[in-house]
Computed example of a mutant assay.
Amino acid sequence: METVGLGLHFEELPMGKQFKTIGRTITESDIVNFINCTGMTEVLFIDLEYLENHSDIRGRVAPGALGYTIAEGLLVQSTMQHTGLAFLNMELDVRAPVFAGDTIHVECEVIESRLTSKGTRGLVRTRNKVINQNGQVVIEYTPLRMVKCRDID
């Protein structure tokens, strides 16, 4: 019986392939739980009076790291189950704030794809754009991952 929800193998990630994830709304609970879990107690994230009266940012802002990790979660559940082997490195650019109530999704393009010397796995780099409900790119990053090849019987 076929198992659904499995990730993409190396062979399914050629240069130029593009895809996007489903969306997810960032909630107040997401922000509070993330701050409590990570210890990111920056006043921008924990002091609503400060935000309202002293900050140039208006609204319940989320840490950039939260937007990035939710984007990774959207990708893990849709592209990496049973096939992702390692997250090796990345460049990250936070372009705009993410707020409670924003709905984000990730648009990906494969910009590097090559077999490793073992031949049973490949290295895949994608350009990931995290986009909010207004079509604005809020985060862009380029992870390099090690991905399994299909089993050869």
Results as ranks from 00 to 15, higher is better:
48 L>A: 13
13 L>K: 04
132 N>P: 10
78 S>G: 13
92 L>Y: 10
28 E>L: 10
144 L>N: 07
30 D>T: 10
134 N>D: 14
62 A>D: 03
10 F>M: 13
133 Q>P: 01
70 I>W: 08
66 L>V: 13
85 L>H: 02
86 A>G: 02
138 V>Y: 01
65 A>D: 00
132 N>V: 05
87 F>A: 10
49 E>C: 05
55 S>I: 14
134 N>V: 03
104 I>M: 07
21 T>M: 04
123 L>K: 07
11 E>F: 04
47 D>P: 01
126 T>Q: 06
119 G>E: 12
55 S>D: 12
25 T>Y: 04
91 E>S: 14
35 I>K: 04
112 E>W: 05
35 I>L: 05
48 L>R: 14
117 S>G: 07
47 D>E: 08
11 E>P: 02
136 Q>A: 09
91 E>I: 15
42 E>K: 01
76 V>A: 13
106 V>W: 03
125 R>C: 06
126 T>G: 00
138 V>A: 01
114 R>V: 14
98 V>P: 01
84 G>V: 03
91 E>L: 10
104 I>S: 02
54 H>Q: 15
148 K>A: 15
23 G>C: 11
106 V>F: 08
66 L>D: 02
115 L>M: 14
71 A>G: 01
101 G>H: 06
129 K>Q: 14
124 V>Q: 04
83 T>R: 12
51 L>D: 02
146 M>T: 13
44 L>C: 03
37 C>Q: 13
28 E>W: 05
36 N>P: 04
68 Y>G: 00
37 C>R: 06
42 E>D: 15
123 L>V: 09
95 R>Y: 12
82 H>R: 05
102 D>H: 02
128 N>E: 12
103 T>N: 09
64 G>W: 00
4 V>Y: 06
127 R>C: 09
78 S>N: 11
31 I>C: 03
140 E>W: 04
76 V>Q: 08
126 T>H: 01
38 T>A: 06
25 T>M: 09
73 G>P: 08
132 N>L: 10
25 T>D: 00
93 D>Y: 13
54 H>C: 11
63 P>K: 03
37 C>T: 15
149 C>T: 08
18 Q>F: 05
92 L>I: 15
99 F>K: 07
122 G>A: 11
98 V>F: 03
140 E>Y: 02
75 L>S: 02
111 I>T: 13
137 V>K: 00
118 K>W: 08
35 I>H: 04
113 S>M: 02
47 D>A: 02
90 M>E: 15
38 T>S: 14
139 I>F: 08
76 V>Y: 09
150 R>K: 13
35 I>S: 06
78 S>M: 12
18 Q>W: 04
114 R>Y: 13
30 D>W: 05
38 T>L: 06
88 L>S: 05
13 L>N: 06
82 H>Q: 11
115 L>H: 06
133 Q>T: 01
100 A>Q: 07
2 E>I: 11
14 P>R: 11
1 M>E: 07
45 F>T: 10
92 L>T: 13
73 G>Q: 10
6 L>K: 02
5 G>T: 05
27 T>E: 12
6 L>R: 05
136 Q>W: 00
150 R>G: 01
70 I>S: 05
142 T>A: 07
41 T>H: 11
138 V>L: 01
100 A>L: 07
138 V>I: 00
90 M>C: 14
40 M>V: 08
131 I>C: 01
40 M>R: 07
127 R>P: 00
29 S>V: 15
75 L>C: 12
112 E>P: 03
88 L>D: 00
18 Q>K: 15
20 K>N: 07
119 G>D: 07
